[in-house]
């Protein structure tokens, strides 16, 4: 399969976030060094953040289990692909019943290429076939992009990227599917 040229959707604009359609839920900032010290941080952070963000839902436990699954996949990708120094910033916002997760991180050129590629594949029209192909011909060892593909192909999350010019940082925006108050997608 080859990547077809598509116009990848634009990330939301900073100015949008000021509008009343977006509700800020929480923000967290930590150093790459601290985060990358232990793999379990992905799991622990995902569970903690998911639980916090789900506090006011009808079935907080169910909502949090689903959210943790999504956040964890994103954090695991970040764990494997980031520059050595700097800060990671996570911002959770809500628009209607969608949770939108923005994650800003320091990147090397190689990381940047990886994330651009991931966003491009995730936005391919035949994303499902891409995802299936990776299962049917599994790579040796880990498939570091599979988690992101799964978020989009299986759970209908959308992924966009924003690259502020002249910086070695990028922001990824993961818009989660609409989840009802009972934690149903």
């Amino acid at each position: 399969m080859s990547i077809v040229k598509t116009i990848t959707p634009a990330p939301p604009m900073e100015a949008d976030f000021a509008s009343s359609r977006y509700r800020m839920i929480m923000a967290a900032r930590f150093t790459v060094g601290g985060f990358a010290r232990e793999w379990a941080h992905c799991h622990l952070l995902a569970n903690y953040l998911a639980r916090y963000v789900s506090a006011n839902e009808g079935d907080p436990e169910r909502h949090a289990t689903l959210l943790s699954t999504f956040i964890n996949e994103l954090l695991e990708v970040i764990y494997r692909n980031h520059a050595a120094d700097g800060q990671i910033e996570l911002i959770f916002r809500k628009r209607g019943r969608h949770v939108i997760l923005q994650i800003a991180l320091p990147v090397t050129e190689q990381n940047r290429v990886f994330y651009r590629m991931a966003v491009q594949i995730v936005n391919q029209p035949d994303l499902k076939s891409w995802y299936r192909a990776r299962l049917e011909e599994p790579a040796e060892g880990e498939d570091t992009m599979l988690g992101l593909l799964e978020l989009a192909a299986v759970y209908a999350c959308t992924l966009t990227i924003s690259e502020p010019p002249g910086q070695d940082r990028i922001s990824l925006f993961l818009e989660l599917p609409e989840v009802d108050e009972m934690g149903e997608v």
């Binding site: 799991h43 289990t65 943790s68 699954t69 964890n72 996949e73 695991e76 299962l135 049917e136 599994p138 880990e142 498939d143 599979l146 988690g147 799964e150």
Partner: peptide
Amino acid sequence: LKYMNNVAFLELNRFVR
């Protein structure tokens, strides 16, 4: 099984194959 990441899922997939 409350949580499973894609590494584990891929391994289950390999097992099925």
